[in-house]
Structures are given as C-alpha cells and as structure tokens.
Design a protein around this nucleic acid. Sequence first.
DNA 1: TTTTGTGAACTAGTTCACAGCT
DNA 2: AGCTGTGAACTAGTTCACAAAA
Lengths: 223, 223
Amino acid sequence: MTRDKASKSGDQVSELTASRLSVYLRCLNALDAAGVKSVSSKTLAEQFHLNAAQIRKDLAYFGEFGVRGVGYYVRELKRHLRVILGLDRTVRVAVVGAGNLGLALADYPGFRQEGFEIVAMFDSERGKVGRKSRTGVRIIEMGEFRKVVKRERIDIAVLAVPASAAQEVVNVAVAAGIRALLNFSPGALKVPPGVKLKNVDLTVSLESLSFFLARGEADEDEG
Amino acid sequence: MTRDKASKSGDQVSELTASRLSVYLRCLNALDAAGVKSVSSKTLAEQFHLNAAQIRKDLAYFGEFGVRGVGYYVRELKRHLRVILGLDRTVRVAVVGAGNLGLALADYPGFRQEGFEIVAMFDSERGKVGRKSRTGVRIIEMGEFRKVVKRERIDIAVLAVPASAAQEVVNVAVAAGIRALLNFSPGALKVPPGVKLKNVDLTVSLESLSFFLARGEADEDEG
DNA sequence: TTTTGTGAACTAGTTCACAGCT
DNA sequence: AGCTGTGAACTAGTTCACAAAA
C-alpha cells in the first residue's frame, strides 16, 4: 500500500519537483532532530513557507506515504525521501578544476552531510597535481580521469573549470561513463541524451539581482 | 521609437526572464568579440540553443530594439541590455563569510568581469579579520558592516555563512540598507518586502542530480 | 474530526504563426 | 524577401476544494 508508485517510471519528473523533494528532506531532518514524530502537510507548509497542497502532490506522486487524519511520520517519510533521492547509498563525487572554487566545493561541508562523498579532484595543471585540499581530497592529473572514475565508481562530476575548457571536460566525463554533472562554469554545454547536466551560473545569478535592483522590484524568490 | 517601454514599470518581470537577459548579454559579448555586427533572433537561437520567439518576446518587453528584415545590431543591443540589467555603472558587492566558499566567491573572476566589484568581505571570526583574499579583498569585522556598507555604497551582499547564522546576517544586511542578497547557505530565509533574495543551494542541486541518477532519467536542463 | 490524495480550476511560461515594417 | 513584435494557442506548474480514509 506504500510502495505502489514508488518506482513509477512513466513520465519525467520536473526539475522543480526534484529540488523540492530535497528541500522536504532537509525540513524533515530538522523536525527529526527536534524530536517531532509526525507532521501534517499543513504544519510543514506553515513552518517552512511552502504550500501544503504542493507537498502532498509531490509526495503522493511517489507513493502513499501519509496517514489520513494524522499526517506523515517524520522518520518514515525521511527514509522514503532518501530512497527516492538516491541517498540510501553513498553518492560518489569528483570535482574537476582545483582552482579557488573547486577547492572550496571539494571541502564544502554541506556536500559531505547527506550521503555524498568527495572522492577526488582533477586538474590539468602540473603544479597542482599531487597536492590535497584542506580536508584531504587528492588532486589527480586530468589524464587519469577515466581510470579513476571507473576504479572509484564516481557517480557525479562537479565542474569548476574555466568556460573555455568546460565542453571538453564534459566530453571526457561523458566518455568515462559519468551520467550526472553539476556545472559552475558560465555558458551552455552540450550533453548527449541520457546524461543529466545541472548548471549553477553565478554571473547570471548576480546579474539578475542587479536587474531587480535597477528596476526597484522586490521580494523573495527560490533560486 | 526605441526607449518607449524601456522604463515600463508596470508588472513584475519573472526571475526566468531576468536570467535569460543575462544569458543574452553573454551571447552578444561572444558575438561582438567575434566581430559580428548584427544577428537575427533565429541565428542567435540556433547558435546558443535558445528559442527565437522567446528572445524576441523577452527583448520586446523592454523596447523595440530590433530592425525588421535585419535583426538586432549586436553593439546596440548589448548597450541596451547592460542598461536594463543595471550594469551601466559599477555594481558594488560585499561577501559575508570568509570561509573557503566566501573566499572563492570574493576572488571569482566571473564576478569582476561584467561591471561587478567585490569591495569587501566580512567575518565575525577574530583571526580572519584584517587578512585579505588572494586578489586583495579585505576581511572586515562584522560589527563594521553597517558603516562600511554605507560608506562604500554596497549594492549587493553575497552570503557564504553557516545556515545557523544566515538569518541574522540577512537581518543586519537589511537593516544596513541592502536590497539584494545572493545566499549560498542552505535553508529558507525571510526578507521584508522590497528586498530581493536569490538562493543558490548547492546541496539541493547535488541531491536533485542524485535523484535523476537514481531514476535513470536524463537530458540537459537550465539551473 | 482531521488530513490525505487528487481531479478540476487557475496561473505562469513557452511556442506558434502571422500581420506589418524595412 | 526577411525579420520583428505580438496576439492566440498551447504546455507546464500551482493552488483549490472536496471525497474518501483513518
């Protein structure tokens, strides 16, 4: 009665829904840490500024996790969300580009928390290879990429390389069997079907803030 | 005939539209650098994987920048977009939080390019105050925030502080007159009306990639 | 009674298709 | 002939509102 739709693989889930699932998990972690046993979509929505109907719809898509008249059991829903998000096993990540940003991302504590492991960094610059990030992530020569990805069973590549190098790195990563990429370099990249690319474009983010400043518009927004 | 709607301040422009304007500007920079004098929405769309009708609609909202039968003059449209995005003058930015991520953001070359200037960093940790980032951005004590923001006429604050401190920093920043914030800490923050907050949530980005990996779904996406 | 799960209604965003300008 | 600017059509995403379950 609970797992029916859990593996529903009909239509594609939107980016927006996927991001919200991750947000829900974070909310549940907070509730769990606070000792809360169960929560209704209404309470959850009020507490974290979300919409109750949307929470229910998002969750219901993956299974009937709630109990009518009660709400959702926090621990149970957490477990379900972790499975849905693929966080029930360690997700192995490599960072490509050992510049300032790459090093900061490799050591970012938020990544290590929920099941992610930063396994290695890669750089093509001679002087960086062999060194380590502060938390001890090794910087490996880019030529070793394919081999290390296979050996270490890397799931996700994080790209923190200059725009000019980004497409080539994507090609190498895809050829090495990487199917998910988080890209921090500016500009559009091409990936073949079957590969998921997510872009975080810092310049676009700042420029759109500047735009709203210039217009005198306002109010919060979910990036 | 060209500026009519330029200051149209009726309805709110969507986040999506604002981000696309920034993308268009980047495309035009590339074309300009390549010596291209004019471009049609069709060509622009094909070259950068966009939609021609959308480009026209986005631009037309702010004025009649195009020439029928010809397209858009690259230099001229660049100039218009820079004005629309508020990049016709230097935008002054402060980074709050001088950890790994904050330091990387303060030195991020992408920010310095298009009219942004990273004026200062702030941190509450005693040992960091007085030091500088690699490119020379000074780290100032958090207690000085208000004064420095006023003196240096800071436009945008970038938040790279732990989640637990984020809301308090927002409150201080808003009280100091900051009207635009780019937040890298996880979790939802409250801002009063009239203040624009944009969130970049790295954990959510990675988790949504993990989600698509777990489902075996695919294909590109714009973050 | 309370709250879920969900069709229906609504709102936002995108794409089409073409009149009209150059 | 070629391309913009834009209403109309369409698609995606959100919220409402209520029947059914505990």
